[in-house]
Amino acid sequence: MEEESEEPYETAQAILDPDTGTFTDEVSERLEYVGSALLVMDRVTLDPPWRGHGLAAVLACEAIPRLMAGCRAVACSPGITDKAEWDRVNARIAQGWERLGFRPYRDNIYLLSPASQDLEEQRGALRGHLADLGASWRTDAS
């Protein structure tokens, strides 16, 4: 069984007021009021051969709209657990999340407002990217 991640707890601590359990005033100022829940994207895990092709962003872009009903915010803390190439890889991961509309908040926590159109705008482009990857894979497999 995999280790449980403490990142969702740390993310919630940075975003939610510990006394009330609601969003902090600072976070509330950044988000439109469209709900009250918080969705924390803990991790997107791909087997090594699938990494580096932008699939995590494609998959997250498809999953988020299905999971965000009633959410005022979607949060993530982009990064890798392998420390070997931490800075380089984290920068690329953060760029991928920013393409989806996540914006830096603090302490490597990124927020996405479900009211933002960024996610939906990127969805078509990412679906095209996925189709191109699939076509490339079929060509290579032939």
Score class of each variant (00 low, 15 high):
2 E>C: 03
3 E>A: 07
4 E>W: 10
5 S>Y: 08
5 S>Q: 13
6 E>K: 11
9 Y>W: 04
9 Y>D: 12
9 Y>F: 15
10 E>R: 07
11 T>E: 01
12 A>C: 05
13 Q>S: 10
14 A>V: 04
17 D>W: 02
18 P>Q: 02
18 P>W: 10
20 T>C: 14
22 T>M: 12
26 E>L: 07
26 E>T: 07
30 R>E: 15
34 V>G: 12
35 G>C: 15
35 G>L: 09
37 A>T: 08
38 L>E: 04
40 V>E: 04
46 L>R: 11
47 D>L: 14
48 P>E: 09
49 P>C: 08
51 R>P: 08
56 A>E: 13
61 C>Y: 03
64 I>E: 02
65 P>I: 04
65 P>F: 06
67 L>G: 03
69 A>L: 07
71 C>L: 02
74 V>T: 03
75 A>F: 05
77 S>R: 12
78 P>E: 00
78 P>A: 01
82 D>R: 02
83 K>N: 13
86 W>K: 14
86 W>C: 10
87 D>S: 09
87 D>L: 12
87 D>V: 10
88 R>H: 13
90 N>D: 15
92 R>C: 02
95 Q>D: 15
103 R>W: 12
104 P>V: 14
107 D>S: 15
107 D>K: 09
107 D>C: 04
109 I>R: 02
109 I>K: 00
113 S>K: 01
114 P>F: 13
115 A>F: 13
116 S>M: 07
116 S>K: 02
119 L>Q: 03
120 E>K: 12
122 Q>K: 07
122 Q>L: 01
122 Q>M: 11
124 G>E: 13
128 G>L: 03
128 G>I: 06
129 H>Q: 14
129 H>C: 08
133 L>P: 00
134 G>W: 04
134 G>F: 01
135 A>F: 09
136 S>W: 03
137 W>S: 07
137 W>E: 10
137 W>F: 09
141 A>C: 09
141 A>V: 09
